[in-house]
Amino acid sequence: MNEILRVEDLTKTFKLSRKQQKIERTDRNVIVAVNQLSFTANKGEIFGLLGPNGAGKTTTLRMLSTLIHPDSGDAILDGCSVVRQPEEVRGKIGFLTSELKLEDFFTPNYLFDFFSHLHQVDEAIISERKQQMFSRFGIDKFAEVKVANLSTGMKQKLSLVISLVHNPDIIIFDEPTNGLDVLTARVVTDYLQELRSEGKTIILSTHIFSLVERLCDRVGVIIDGRMISCGTLDEVCNGLSLEDRFFEIYKEVKGGEE
């Protein structure tokens, strides 16, 4: 297998304000969100980061997308470092999270062109790819409708399309089906499998076991910012169902702390 992503000792801490300290019920003014996290992903596979809320999944993906900087460690995506070559990394990845919004004022047509230009996509390719992607997700009928007037599902499909305007080899999805209706969720998961068959690498975060079981080739279990277990589903599950194995791991980690 060709390794396309290598994460090495990635660490990220956040300072807590007094207000956050109260909410978190802690005296510490620093929280370690990601703690020396390491894993690899291969070309043409779907790698899932599984963990409970607050485990550090989103922070990890935000560091991979260069939205935030690691305190230490590094991640190499297709030969480019998130620390030293963030612009090159951003050119190689498609990143989608519910945190990223599209301007309500513009139409899908305009936004596709705009983001294609920012990704330096050739003019000739833009039009062809737009037609193909819009048709694939049923956006073509709404191409000239302002985002503000689109349904929630259509907005989410458009966000997915916009994140992929440049046909990246590495796709990073934070909770890809979160907040989606069942139909849109199915469209998205089907499309992820389609992308894998095209040789794309997909890194996704989720807390939904069934999604990992259905989609992922390899999985990493993150708890409290640390990678507890990583490998193929068979390797991680050790003969159990993913859900049972996860709670076993969780109990071991949390029980050890107690």
């Binding site: 050119g91 990845i93 990223l100 920012l118 916009i162």
Partner: peptide
Amino acid sequence: TIATLLVTP
């Protein structure tokens, strides 16, 4: 929407 811009190259 600024984050959407910031993840472009």
